[in-house]
């Protein structure tokens, strides 16, 4: 995959703020897209590039906090709030809902750049976790039914003999299944496999117990 430049979305109804931030962030090396309203931003197609959202709280139709609610499921798009008149309840609400930072205008450029860097790192991490999970799920999907059963019991700490007893197969067969599981899941060690199972479990419980 080619290295993708992170993208910073700026939503602010004030032209001075939009224009100055666009230039600052571009000069800092990011791609920048600006919008004067939340609605305009929502109309923009989703990307899988790492990035973040610099969001003004008071906006004409849909305000910043309301937009944050709509973006609840988008972990890969951290939000840095900027506001012309922040109050404590407003910032608490924003931070509780997962905002990276809450800056009051006029803010220091470094404070914003640091916040954006942090947000983009978070975005990159979220995206790579997503990719990792996707790959893990693909590998898990390639396991046979018997292999999944063996894996579930092994990572639960059962000995090969106990697994064989539980599934009504010989210990040798258990060993063979276990080797294939390790290979298909690309697990370097048994500990690795236990971690993978833990990662899969929250979203894949239904599938592992089938």
């Amino acid at each position: 995959m080619p290295p993708r430049t992170p993208i910073v979305f700026v939503v602010d109804d004030d032209i001075s703020v939009r224009e100055s931030l666009e230039l600052l962030l571009r000069t800092a090396g990011w791609r920048v897209e600006t919008f004067s309203s939340a609605t305009d931003f929502l109309a923009y197609p989703r990307t899988s590039v790492p990035g973040c959202l610099v969001l003004d709280v008071s906006l004409p139709d849909l305000n910043g906090l309301e937009l944050q609610q709509r973006l609840e499921d988008r972990r890969e798009l951290p939000i840095v709030f900027i506001t012309g008149h922040g109050d404590i309840p407003m910032s608490v609400r924003a931070m509780k809902a997962g905002a990276t930072e809450f800056l009051t205008k006029p803010f220091k450029a470094d404070a914003l750049l640091d916040a954006i860097r942090g947000a983009i790192a978070g975005s990159t991490a979220a995206l790579s976790r997503e990719t990792e999970l996707k790959n893990l799920r693909a590998s898990y999907a390639a396991l046979s039914r018997r292999e999944r059963e063996v894996m579930a019991l092994v990572v639960a700490g059962k000995l090969n003999k106990q697994v064989g007893g539980a599934l009504g197969i010989t210990e040798v067969t258990v060993k063979a299944h276990r080797g294939r599981v390790m290979r298909k899941m690309k697990a370097g060690s048994f500990a690795d496999l236990v971690k993978m199972a833990a990662t899969l479990r929250p979203s894949g419980d239904a599938r592992t117990t089938v």
Binding site: S16, V17, G84, F107, K108
Partner: peptide, 20 residues
């Protein structure tokens, strides 16, 4: 405060960009 802080935010961002 909102009215004044908007252009001030712009000024600080622009000056920072200028330095960069």
């Amino acid at each position: 405060a909102h009215e004044v802080n908007q252009p001030l935010a712009g000024i600080i961002a622009n000056a920072s960009t200028c330095l960069l």
